[in-house]
């Protein structure tokens, strides 16, 4: 039985870890880009960011003062037992958010869209967002938090099957160029693309692709993985680097997630997870122990199931 207190403690702990410690996969990606960046200004920016990550970890201070819109992704094992039920779990997440906002400190970013009311604890109407998923044959709960800014770098468009890969490439370029200028997207970014689904799921998949997959990860569908690589290269060939300065550092990695969509459409969403790509995950085991990591392992074979039944063997089903 996982206690409510364990859930709250883990949810609180990952808020601080996400805000302060840059995940290793993203750090390696940026280090690789510094070595190849020829633009002097863009390279200086990347170098300053590397110093900043170190300063954050040394001082236990948030790497970016815009601590974004803190939120949670929860994966519950089908065999997991936890007291307080789902309501207790959601209450623990809110309490952890409020405590972490004061203690880390996080910026109290959450306000009412019209009245700008700020509870100074990052909780409010529909905040923090909690997204749920499930995992067969597991007795643990995974809690992931993501801190992402929210003003620039995302867009959605309804494309049609006839627009093809050209349409995807154009929209990809449009979004990166528009938000890349002056570095509004805080690039180089992990670019997440949602393809298909209903409009709302298209947005959700793209955001999850950006925030919940690590640098170096590939889509299990080899043709989709090929497109990921092609788009990454296209983004880095724009001629733009960090802060929109001349350079080649735009896309640390590109992740695509697909959902079955309307036969007439090919909706697409694009999301950019920034130079402060903040995520942290805790696994709460049945015996009450907590394990920390930075790879959310969100897209399991079960999450990407295509048929009525599924298999945990990732190679057993492929669209391509």
């Amino acid at each position: 039985m996982i206690s409510n207190q364990t859930i709250e403690q883990a949810a609180y702990e990952i808020m601080g870890r996400a805000a302060i410690d840059i995940p290793d996969d993203y750090l390696s990606g940026i280090k690789g880009m510094v070595n190849t960046e020829e633009g002097d200004l863009s390279a200086f920016v990347l170098g300053a960011m590397l110093e900043n990550y170190e300063a954050a970890t040394e001082d236990r201070r948030p790497m970016c003062a815009d601590t974004g819109l803190p939120r949670y992704y929860i994966k519950v094992g089908n065999e997991a037992k936890f007291d307080g039920g789902f309501i207790g779990l959601e209450r623990a997440l809110r309490s952890a958010t409020a405590r972490a906002t004061h203690d880390v400190p996080l910026r109290p970013n959450r306000v009412h869209p019209l009245w700008r009311t700020d509870h100074n604890n990052n909780c409010g109407l529909n905040s923090p967002e909690v997204e749920w998923s499930f995992e067969p044959d597991a007795d643990w709960i995974d809690i992931t938090t993501v801190h992402k800014g929210g003003l620039f770098g995302s867009d959605y468009r309804m494309l049609f099957p006839g627009d093809g890969i050209d349409g995807i490439k154009r929209f990809f370029l449009d979004t990166l160029i528009a938000f890349g200028k002056r570095g509004l997207a805080c690039q180089p970014a992990i670019v997440g693309i949602g393809l298909g689904g209903s409009k709302d799921i298209c947005m959700v998949l793209g955001k999850q692709a950006a925030c919940l997959r690590t640098v170096g990860d590939k889509n299990p569908d080899p043709k989709v993985a090929e497109l990921e690589a092609e788009l990454k290269e296209l983004g880095n060939s724009i001629g733009m680097g960090a802060m929109g300065f001349v350079g080649s550092s735009m896309v640390v990695d590109c992740h695509i997630e697909c959902g079955f969509t309307h036969t007439g459409g090919m909706p697409i969403s694009i999301h950019t997870f920034c130079l402060s790509s903040r995520r942290a995950t805790a696994r709460l085991h049945a015996d009450g122990t907590i394990e920390h990591r930075t790879d959310p392992q969100w897209f399991t074979p079960y999450m990407r199931r295509e048929g009525i039944e599924w298999s945990n063997d990732a190679s057993s089903k492929k669209s391509a």
């Binding site: 300063a55 201070r61 948030p62 970016c64 003062a65 570095g183």
Partner: peptide, 11 residues
Amino acid sequence: VGYGTGALLGR
């Protein structure tokens, strides 16, 4: 720079 170098500026 970045954006942003929140920890360096905080220092």
